[in-house]
Design a protein around this nucleic acid. Sequence first.
RNA 1: GCGAACGUGGCGAAACUGGCAGACGCGCAGGACUUAGGAUCCUGUCCCUCACGGGGUGCGGGUUCGACUCCCGCCGUUCGCACCA
Length: 809
Amino acid sequence: MTYTPETIEPKWQQRWAERRTNEPDLDRAEKPFYNLMMFPYPSAEGLHVGNFYAFTGSDVFGRFMRMQGHTVFEPIGFDAFGIHSENFALKVGTHPNVLIPQNIKNFTRQLTQLGGMFDWKHVLSTTDPAYYKWTQWLFLQLYHAGKAYKKKAAVNWCPSCKTVLANEQVINGACERCGSQVEQRALEQWFFKITDYAQRLLDNLDDKSKMDWSATTTTAQRNWVGRSSGAEVDFAAGGETIRVYTTRPDTIFGATFMVLAPEHPLVAKLTTPAQQSAVAAYQQAAAAKDVVARKVETKDKTGVFTGGYATNPATGQPIPVWIADYVLMDYGTGAIMAVPAHDERDFAFATKFHLPILRVVASGDETASTPITEPSAETDGSRLVNSGAFDGKPVTDGAAAIVAWLEAKHVAKGVIKYRLYDWCISRQRYWGPPIPIIYCDACGPVPVPEKDLPVLLPHIEDFRPDDSGISPLARHKEWYHVACPTCGKQGRRETDVSDTFLDSAWYFYRYLGTEFADRALDANRVKKWLPVPMYIGGNEHAVLHLLYSRFIAMVLQERGLVHFDEPFRKFRAHGLIVKDGAKMSKSKGNVVNPDEYVARWGADTLRLFLMFLGPFEEGGDFRDAGLTGPRRFLERLWDLVGQCERRTLSGDEIHRDVMIKWNATKKKVTHDLETLGYNTAIAALMELLNTMRETNCSERQIVKDMVLMVAPFAPHFAEECWERLGGQTSVFDAKWPAWNEGLTQDAVVEIVVQVNGKTRSVIKAGRGSQESQVLPKAQKDDTVRRFLDGKEIVKVIFVKDRLINIVVR
RNA sequence: GCGAACGUGGCGAAACUGGCAGACGCGCAGGACUUAGGAUCCUGUCCCUCACGGGGUGCGGGUUCGACUCCCGCCGUUCGCACCA
């Protein structure tokens, strides 16, 4: 009988569905384990091999946990709203209402073929009114918590996608989706106050009891929140006060000029008549440049003198006030004190415009008068100079002393700042959940009552956005005209929809209660299953999605809806699958579609191959040639199952080497699966198979264990083998093999014998032998003797069960 | 520019807290079985050397009886962030 995945795989997929193998009882599970993977965006191209890789890696873990005796809930769904889908719909000229169901159907087919342990009973799509009803409800939760507000804001506008982008969606000044240069526009937008949680979002990252995340991810989050501590200092300028933020208050004596952002409100007041036209021209030029150009275009400094002066509160000296676009209005206070001696940008500016540069920090043999040739921001081991009473103080102490001194004079206070911005969730687009707000001339903005949810997204044909900057929904009076829920007068619906990231910030709650039409999340199930013990997904979401989900959990906790503030106890990012060293992308035409590989090799072989490619958290290069190895392995194991002994041999009948290998493999595979070391787990299974073949062993118990251990990787294959071996239930309801610790190592070990650190021989000795037993044996070894001959033994290093190193002279 | 990760055969990669470098797999070479082989099985496969032996984990140094592993300095690749005061 030969191995035929093309018949075996559909057979088991059908059985799993019929027998509801993968649909745990969410209310009665005793050892619940929520195995979460990031749900896909159902693109028209279908699942690519990178998705396949990610889902397989997560599925292997889920299946392993199940065999360990947990009741595993492994849901899947579709993140189907958003610009991505909408843009594709626009491109092909088909309505997303038509397109998305087709894509979901295709994805469902592919996900089924992959053999994932998905609970299809709880599948969801964010575009389903039964889902987004609760996304709207979530918006209202934030609204009632005072965490949602509206403001007119300069926003990133993508002229090609015709929508507002979050700062996070602007990459180097370009739209992350289409690559167009982003412009600045002022629009009324809904924001979530994520900044209220900045410190908590940081603190929890260090709380091991709440979060076990890989360091790269936590670092990315930490950088994103961007905490800095410094001081706000007031500089008097005429009758006005210019407030600056600085992280280096210790250098204030070196502040020889000030720079304001061109948009700074005080610019007009400070500008002297003589400078007016120059300043106005500069402001205009800066406004014309979009946010991005200012940030990216060039690091060459430009600027204009306002003609005004401010007083340095430390020195009492007047210093000129300039404007320049390297100072950004939206960070700090939009104004800086410039310390050219110790800041690279200020130095460049001062050099270009011939402004004074005064050293206030010296290190090593530098003195107060050592000229500055390049700016230095060194603090360690440096001391203050040219700083009045603070001269000679180490910089670190000096900072605190200077802040205290300025605070006493009421011109400064220590502050903590974060780079994190509030989350703009408004989108002037069609393909998203309408934001559930009604504007009433009499009552102002009124939240849609919960009983009126969902606010259905109407089917409109003209969903194309235009340059007006308003949502396509704003062209449909029949939809947005609605009675005010409070006073009954004619009101107007909010015509913006919400950001896709809001859909995905809470989907893992909804999985647990898709069958409930009357509540977003079910309290008992939330209590039982959450927080998520293992979340696996892509690093591209290391910042945004994960940060937003964390924020939402914090708000839900405060609302008393959940019992935790960190939704993902453990997060692991899988690596990236590349093709010929390059990232797969449509434009490069190197996207690998898994379908043809499933058809040719079977899903199990593809799964095994992908997991064997390299460390799961590092990804790898997809090469067709590699599939033969895993396929051969399955075929050989298949044959072994066929040749398997009828009876179970007693321990004594099994070859000692096989016995050891068998137990050692069980231990290693178990450990490797726990730590996502899939590639080495597979290698260990291959080794065991090789040992079996070399020793002509087909012992039933061992073969059974091999089938069990390969099951997470090759589920259909394992089910079929298990059935051939007489298994009555699903192999995934069988118990994960246990091992005998005493038999994982041989009683006789090989000990390396070195002379002066070079390996000369290997001798056998009983496990646990002492140096006194091993040394004489080593000295008797022929080869070793040659190297010891006529030499004096200076020292012997003995590492138990491993090595003996004889140092001679 | 800043931050992080990484650098091991022809290729993907192993190597637990410093202890036989190259497990496992691909590929390649030779052989067996075959009308045939792009199927299967067996053997070999880091480099130099007939051998004894020597060299070898990006490059240069250091610590150590012993370094892929730790430390210092370069070079290179990848990924984040990027005028954040």
